[in-house]
Simulated assay, not measured.
Amino acid sequence: MKEIRYFYVPNASSAGELPEEEAKHATRVLRLQCGDQMILVDGEGGLFNSEVSVVSNKHCLYNIVETLPCRREWNGRIALGIAPTKMMDRIEWMA
């Protein structure tokens, strides 16, 4: 069984092609071929199961197979506590 591959693609539902950096990674590093499955995330809550349709050096085209339901896993808040130090640079770095 192959591992699940996730890619960030702005406007994934209408783009049809991975961004250049993602395409290079998919084709050169992961060596994806036509028919391989991947999951696309659009950064706006969209999650898409897709299939690679065309692969070349700097381009990777895909077809969306299905739109996956995406729900928020965590609805909490984060509270961060820090101890003050004598060096103000560290506080500014933390902020």
Rank of each mutant, 00 (worst) to 15 (best):
M1Y: 05
K2C: 04
I4R: 09
I4Y: 05
I4F: 06
R5N: 06
R5K: 09
R5F: 03
Y6T: 01
Y6F: 13
F7A: 08
F7N: 03
F7K: 01
F7L: 03
V9F: 02
P10Y: 09
N11E: 13
A12V: 13
A12F: 08
S13F: 15
S14W: 04
S14R: 14
S14V: 14
A15T: 14
E17A: 11
L18N: 07
P19V: 06
P19Q: 09
P19N: 11
E20S: 13
E20T: 13
E21N: 11
E22K: 01
E22W: 00
E22T: 02
A23I: 03
A23E: 06
A23G: 09
H25E: 01
A26H: 07
A26E: 03
T27P: 04
R28K: 13
V29M: 05
L30I: 03
R31D: 08
Q33G: 10
Q33A: 15
Q33E: 15
Q33K: 13
Q33P: 00
C34R: 14
G35N: 03
G35I: 00
D36Q: 05
D36G: 10
D36R: 03
Q37A: 12
Q37E: 15
Q37V: 02
M38P: 06
L40M: 10
V41A: 09
D42C: 05
D42S: 04
G43P: 02
G43S: 05
G43Y: 06
E44F: 11
G45P: 04
G45L: 09
G46E: 10
G46F: 07
L47P: 02
L47A: 10
F48A: 04
F48Q: 04
F48H: 09
F48P: 02
N49S: 15
S53Y: 00
S56C: 01
K58D: 02
H59K: 08
H59M: 01
C60G: 11
C60Y: 01
I64V: 13
I64E: 04
V65E: 11
E66G: 00
L68K: 12
P69A: 12
P69S: 14
P69V: 12
C70F: 14
R71P: 04
R71Q: 11
E73A: 14
E73G: 15
W74F: 14
N75K: 10
N75A: 01
N75I: 00
N75Y: 05
G76I: 05
G76Q: 02
I78M: 07
A79G: 11
L80Y: 15
G81E: 15
G81W: 14
A83P: 00
P84Y: 00
P84A: 00
P84V: 00
T85E: 07
K86W: 07
M87P: 03
M87E: 12
D89Y: 11
R90A: 07
I91A: 10
E92M: 08
E92Y: 09
E92W: 08
E92F: 10
W93L: 15
W93M: 15
A95K: 13
A95F: 12
A95W: 11
A95S: 11
A95E: 12
